[in-house]
Write a protein that binds this DNA or RNA. Structure first.
Lengths: 357, 357
DNA sequence: CTGAAAGCGCTAACAT
DNA sequence: ATGTTAGCGCTTTCAG
């Protein structure tokens, strides 16, 4: 069933039928009624969305690009909150939200063709590595695009937080408590799946801007306190599952110079650290202080000291930016939302105050 | 930039350029290379998805229809798990997942036009009331459609659980413990936003199949034990937020004949019941037993006795059904996934065993 | 291995 | 208030 068939049936032009659906004011109410009746009778459901999109050159759909298999997004509380914020804005603007399927290749990167094949008016890109081909492909489409979290790029609308500042504040908190022996559990520095201690070269060369910034933040605080960064082991995990944090902490805590505090670049990893500590008979915060990042683990025991960020607001802001771009408004300035260090029960002074050096 | 422009530039036909992208075997490798080079140079990103969809009469996108504002889905742990399962299947089949925006009208119903305007090859409909216009509209499109949870309809592919049986088992557990005074906290029976005690007429006339079935299950177990259903107050909440369960339990627990056990049609509501009990100085399970439904509240205190269902598998099965429909395979039989009563710490025998009547 | 013709279903722009 | 024309960008079908 098509517009034309309905038109033929009634002896009117296709245009008139189109108008019945799109421009009620451009035809008489009576005719409009007759058209709807006929449509109903013949089982016509209104203008075909694809034909309409082709003609109008818009789809009224926003594409979401995710750096991992889509289903992981629904495992990550931060991503879920983000999507909540984003979807409430897009739905408010009557835009669909298309979760773009990008099968992961052997190298772990996501298939860049996915971006080319998505029938959308714009993209929201969630947390990708600097050179992710999928991101390049999306940007190549020339559609309005907002990048969230990473990578921040000149001229590309962006929403994120001040990762470096927030990380520095987190480390500063531990320093103030008197800690001097630190370990860091970080999620991926690069998408190559490496797991283990990352030397400063790898830290600085990280392909994930957020990882790089948080490490820099930790480092600047540590060095500002007069402690050498070389004394801090950074354990890189190839993802952010709690089990990875568990392994990482296992390694850090069984090293010769066991840290009295562990900084973790995500709450999920921190949860793993907590588990590892318990397994080793270390109590938190007495024997070990732990700081997370994100504040998405309300149920942690003990309650996690962490950096709070508003993931929902991030999604909502990204959505508002994209909507304004779709309306043809000016390219919005990059935005960094505030974070806040939330001190809870997982941090305390080290058990034996270390003598000042 | 279009196919034709690239073709013109190289002096080949549009068809050949199309083949370069879609049928590599149908042209020489050398020509293919030249085409890609030119495309690159001119900033052509491959065939336009909309033009292609119009011609091929498929979009490679699956639409998700939700009975509430989309953003609510990301608040509901059951829906999130469901989407995880669904997205992993659709992504595996290289299909996009479109969250269809259906602005809610004044009556609370969702705009049925949304279904007509979605450029998709099929729908997954998540948990709707019997006569939801949005569902009718979707079915009217004549596209492959799988309904999840409700409403089960003749001839429409369906995935759900045996709500009645599961509810009956939940009530049976309490009866075995010796309870005789029950209250029920239910989510909506109809989409009219009513809050308060629902009489048996309203219970049987409920527009939500799942609510109806669960109530029937509770009822059959209670009556099988020789107790009158008229003695059981059913409090209907206009949603399933914990605060609603809180209010409902407040009402039930302050009635003259305070129940010793509360059956709740969702975990979220049960969480509210727990909160209300605490507020009233009743301890669970000593003074009050509470049973949930869904098993999505791992952090509850005390741990919730509940009916477990595998939401992720539900999504994955719905996805597999839809994919098989899209492949033109036969309409799959309706499926009811198993549930399991998980007894935890929120249920116990009533404090003072009630004398047998 | 390459191409010509046709048309998927719709609506903007311009008549009348 | 209604109609005509044209074409959005692509790929199926059929021919070479």
């Amino acid at each position: 069933m098509t517009l034309a068939r309905i038109a033929g049936e009634l002896g009117v032009s296709a245009m008139t039928v189109s108008n019945a659906y799109n421009r009620p004011d451009r035809l008489s109410g009576a005719l409009r009624e007759r058209i709807f009746e006929t449509a109903d009778r013949l089982g016509y459901n209104g203008p075909d969305p694809v034909g309409r999109s082709l003609r109008r050159q818009r789809t009224d759909v926003v594409g979401v690009l995710y750096s991992n298999p889509l289903s992981y997004a629904f495992d990550d509380p931060a991503a879920v909150s983000f999507l909540r914020g984003l979807s409430s804005v897009t739905e408010g603007a009557d835009l669909g939200l298309l979760l773009v399927p990008a099968a992961s290749g052997a190298s772990g990167g996501r298939d860049p063709r996915a971006a080319a094949q998505a029938a959308v008016d714009g993209f929201v890109v969630y947390s990708m590595s600097d050179e992710e081909p999928l991101l390049t492909a999306a940007l190549g489409r020339g559609l309005p695009t907002v990048v969230v979290d990473q990578p921040a790029r000149q001229g590309v609308p962006f929403v994120g937080v001040d990762d470096e500042g927030a990380a520095s504040e987190a480390a500063g908190h531990l320093l103030e408590l008197g800690h001097e022996g630190f370990g860091v559990v970080s999620f991926a520095l690069s998408p190559d799946g490496r797991e283990g201690i990352a030397d400063p070269g790898r830290q600085e060369g990280a392909a994930f801007q957020v990882s790089r910034s948080r490490l820099r933040g930790y480092r600047s605080a540590v060095e500002a306190a007069g402690l050498p960064w070389s004394g801090v082991s950074v354990f890189e995990c190839p993802g952010s599952a709690a089990t990875l944090g568990h392994r990482a902490a296992g390694a850090l805590l069984s090293s010769k110079r066991r840290p009295t505090a562990i900084l973790s670049t995500s709450d999920q990893l921190a949860l793993g650290v907590l588990a590892a500590a318990e397994e080793l008979g270390l109590s938190v915060p007495e024997d070990l202080s732990v700081v997370g990042f994100d504040d998405v683990s309300p149920g942690a025991v003990p309650p996690l000291t962490t950096v709070r960020q508003d993931h929902e607001e991030k999604g909502s802001l990204a959505g508002r930016m994209l909507v304004s771009l779709l309306r043809g408004e000016d390219v919005p300035e990059p935005r960094r939302l505030p974070t806040r260090l939330v001190v809870r029960g997982s941090t305390a002074p080290p058990r034996w105050p270390v003598p000042a050096s």
